[in-house]
C-alpha cells in the first residue's frame, strides 16, 4: 500500500465521516426549527453538504471506474434537482400565503412591496377547495 493510497483512503474517511455529521446536523435542524421556512435551510444542509461529501468520499473509494462515473452523475443530478425542488416547495408555500415567523422584536419580516401575489392567508385548508371549478 503506497503513500498515495493511504492519503486517498484517509481523505475519503474524512469526507464520509464529516458528511455523516452534517447529515445528522441537518436532521436535527429539521426537527428543531420552529417553522417551515427555517426548516428549508436545514434541509438544504442535508442536500448540499451531506450528499456532496458522502458522494465525494464514495468516489474516492471507488477510484477511476464506471462506479465513479455513476456517482458523478448522481452528484450532478442532485446538484441540479435539489435546489429546484427546494425552490418549488418554497414557492408553493409562498403562493399559498405562508409567511416566515417574525423574531421577538416584532420587526415585520416581509417588506410591504413584496406581498405578491395577494392570496388568502389560510394554509392548506383552502387548498382543499377546487380552484378550477370557480372559473
Amino acid at each position: 500500500m503506497s503513500i498515495f493510497d493511504i492519503v486517498i483512503s484517509g481523505l475519503s474517511w474524512i469526507s464520509i465521516v464529516s458528511g455523516s455529521i452534517f447529515l445528522i446536523i441537518g436532521a436535527t435542524g429539521i426537527i428543531r426549527f420552529p417553522d417551515f421556512w427555517s426548516r428549508l435551510h436545514a434541509a438544504a444542509i442535508v442536500d448540499s453538504a451531506g450528499a456532496g461529501l458522502l458522494l465525494f468520499g464514495m468516489a474516492l473509494q471507488a477510484g477511476l471506474t464506471f462506479v465513479t462515473v455513476k456517482l458523478v452523475l448522481i452528484g450532478v443530478f442532485l446538484l441540479i434537482t435539489g435546489p429546484t425542488a427546494t425552490h418549488a416547495v418554497a414557492n408553493a408555500a409562498f403562493v399559498s400565503g405562508s409567511r416566515p415567523l417574525g423574531d421577538k422584536s416584532g420587526k415585520p419580516v416581509v417588506p410591504a412591496d413584496v406581498i405578491d401575489p395577494p392570496l388568502p392567508p389560510e394554509m392548506p385548508t383552502n387548498l382543499s377547495e377546487d380552484l378550477t371549478s370557480k372559473t
Binding site: 452534517f22 446536523i25 441537518g26 436535527t28 435542524g29 428543531r32 426549527f33 420552529p34 421556512w37 427555517s38 435551510h41 436545514a42 438544504a44 444542509i45 448540499s48 453538504a49 409567511r99 416566515p100 415567523l101 417574525g102 423574531d103 419580516v109 416581509v110 417588506p111 412591496d113 413584496v114
Partner: peptide, 22 residues
Amino acid sequence: SNWAVSKVILARSLSLQQSLFN
C-alpha cells in the same frame, strides 16, 4: 454557509432573524 447554518442549528438557544427581501 453550511458551517454558519450548522452553528445556528447547534446553538443552545435558537436565534433566527428570518427575512424576505428582493
